[in-house]
Write a protein that binds this DNA or RNA. Structure first.
Lengths: 189, 189
DNA sequence: AATAAAACCGAACAATATGTTTTGTAACAA
DNA sequence: TTGTTACAAAACATATTGTTCGGTTTTATT
């Protein structure tokens, strides 16, 4: 890939995330992104068709990366290590989030965070399917599988959101315990 | 209230919901609402400061009404009637939703429904607090109360959303069973 | 080092949306 | 009937969007 393209793309992403830290997505105009990134108007539209596609690409990068690193992990949960949640995928995700790579926490805890949370959730579903559903680690209780997958993803996203809204007072280990308590009737070996 | 005001307000709401049935919130311009409602530009701004406030007022009316009718109900759940979920507040909500008053289902199942779902959720929280939390109907398991309230609300909204995305193939009774299965470790007497 | 391809810039453009102002008319409540 | 209020129509400044054009700089390749 051309060095210029990469540089421009990064500049747009940087400007965009910077703006997202101070105002909500819909309040940001393309013009502002252009000014903040210090690029030409034509250049922006050469890279991204619309503002929505820019958001999509950014989220794909951010959440795709996090989910990918968790994909290879063992999907064990707290039962495996006698009460602790040490090797849970969810604990890994929380720890990874806490590193605040690329200011991802700013986005997830911003005022109008529904957009980011929904991207997070849709990426998370893939992980749940491959790590739990396809490995038969969901308890048999008569509920449709996609309903369960959706519920697990949604609940984890809500857990993260709640955690952030309280400024991460709890440790990732504690939050994993919270989450797994709620998941108790569903996830098991 | 002046007859004219009421009429105009209703016309705007009707035009707005009609437009929301065919395109997403952010794709709708104030101009379109004005044209569809067949009113003057000035009139719109006399009623609503911005498009966001219009949305807020509409949701307040729609969800406020549904939540209010459920407020007075007994908060019993399936244990009370020997296995059935007959007198659950949640069953009542699902039945009420199914009547599709004011095309509320169109909104909740539209393409970009995060906005409506989040309004639904925030109204639902009040109900959960008054019907469950304040009556001590949440099981003691070491989790913070507001975390539980948020989880119950979020899960119910997700359940409704999943139900609608599958064109309501399941009955309200069945969906209540699904939901209460997930809530089993949390809600109890 | 020379060259062709590309990415970029700046300016301008039409089209559309926003929110306000003004002036006049019609409907309402008392 | 009378004073008040809601509405309409038109115009307005301002801002944003997405595109087009000509020209410049950087890049990869030979």
């Amino acid at each position: 890939m051309d060095r210029r393209q990469k540089k421009t793309r990064e500049a747009i992403f940087a400007a965009f995330t910077s703006l997202l830290a101070e105002k909500s997505y819909h309040q940001i105009s393309v013009q502002e992104i252009i000014d903040a990134a210090d690029i030409g108007r034509t250049t922006f539209y050469a890279h991204f068709e619309t503002k929505d596609y820019l958001l999509k690409d950014l989220c794909e990068e951010l959440f795709g990366h996090i989910i990918d690193t968790a994909m290879g992990l063992p999907s064990g949960h707290y039962h495996c290590t006698c009460g602790s949640a040490e090797d849970s995928v969810f604990l890994h995700l929380l720890r990874h989030l806490q590193e605040n790579d690329r200011n991802i926490l700013e986005l997830l805890s911003s005022e109008n965070n529904e957009l980011f949370l929904s991207y997070f959730k849709s990426n998370l579903k893939k992980l749940i399917v491959s790590q739990y559903a396809e490995k038969g680690m969901l308890k048999e209780n008569g509920l449709p599988e996609d309903y369960l997958v959706n519920h697990i993803s949604a609940t984890f996203v809500e857990t993260v959101s709640w955690w952030l809204s309280r400024n991460r007072k709890e440790s990732p280990e504690e939050m994993t315990e919270y989450f797994l308590t709620l998941m108790h009737p569903i996830i098991g070996e």
